[in-house]
Amino acid sequence: MTVTLDRLQRLAYRIDDVNNSAGHAEPDSVVPTLPINLQSGSGDPGVCCDHSGKMGGSQAWTSRYTLIMNISTLVTPMVRQTLSADVYSQLRELLISGRMMPGEKLSLRTIAEALGVSVMPVREAVHRLVAEQALEMSANRYIRVPVLTVSQFREITSIRLNLEGQAAGQAASLASPQALVQIEAIHEEFCSEFAQSVPDESRLIALNKQLHFAIYDQADMPILLRIIESLWLRIGPILNYDLRSGNERVVQRVQASHHSALVEALKKRNPGAASHSLQNDIRTAADFILETGVLVVADTVRPASTD
């Protein structure tokens, strides 16, 4: 962190205010302190100076003020952390729910303006998502939603079939009566939207994600839930392509029929049927996406069983 003279002055004033309010006249009387050394190459390495070895003015200032070496000087201010976490959560939700499309380009400034924040918390949030491979950052610093290869998509789908099938089966055994009522209500909203002459794609996508995770949450397996979330973070942008495309699956309400079978199995407390219905939902959507050719064929693709 670059520390300027102005920043150090403001910190010193805050230290004076805290100590004076506690009945102390000098900051030295609270905890041991470290004098600020503005000479180049000496003192606290976190304090920066200009090329002359001075920091913008008289060094007489350093004889009066000191820095308290406590946790408040080492951590990021909470407001900034809260903003960064909030930006991260909102971008993450857009990715998981499939509201961003593969290959879509973003900019830090555009995101910041949309959320009404500065670029700094957006940059921090984006770097977290890049580390999780949910976003890509090119050499010229533009941000892009990754485009999966066919083999990557097949691999993630295979993992989803196993993990999400397990979560659905577990939920059938453990879901509370109140949770089952909530799950059925989400499903009814999903079917009601499907029944519209022109369904709202964004609403269908949001309800689809809401239904799946309401079920997975009832498995009472928090580690498994986090793994599933990480998979959706990678696959979310392409996952709901069939809901966006207006294809025959949408016309025939294939997704709604799979959900109906899943909800019915949950109500009957049938883990095997719940797992099977959930896997059918995943498999048929994956097959459709593979058939459309929207994925990148970047490597040799062998036919892979999703059983």
Results as ranks from 00 to 15, higher is better:
L8M: 03
L11R: 15
N19D: 13
N20R: 14
A22W: 08
V30Y: 08
V30A: 14
V31Q: 08
P35D: 04
S42V: 06
C49W: 10
S52N: 06
K54P: 13
G56F: 10
A60M: 09
T62S: 11
Y65A: 09
I71F: 04
I71P: 04
I71K: 07
S72A: 12
V79G: 14
R80H: 12
A85P: 08
D86K: 11
V87I: 13
L94K: 13
R99M: 15
K105Y: 05
L108E: 12
T110H: 13
E136H: 12
R144P: 02
V147N: 05
V150C: 00
S151V: 14
S151H: 08
Q152S: 04
N162S: 14
N162L: 12
A167P: 00
G169I: 08
I186N: 02
E189S: 11
D200F: 01
N208F: 09
L211A: 06
H212V: 11
Q218C: 08
P222H: 00
I227W: 00
S230Y: 01
R234D: 05
L243T: 02
S245Q: 07
E248R: 09
R253W: 05
S257M: 15
H258R: 02
L266F: 01
K267E: 09
K268V: 09
R269G: 07
G293R: 04
L295H: 00
V296W: 04
V297P: 03
A298R: 08
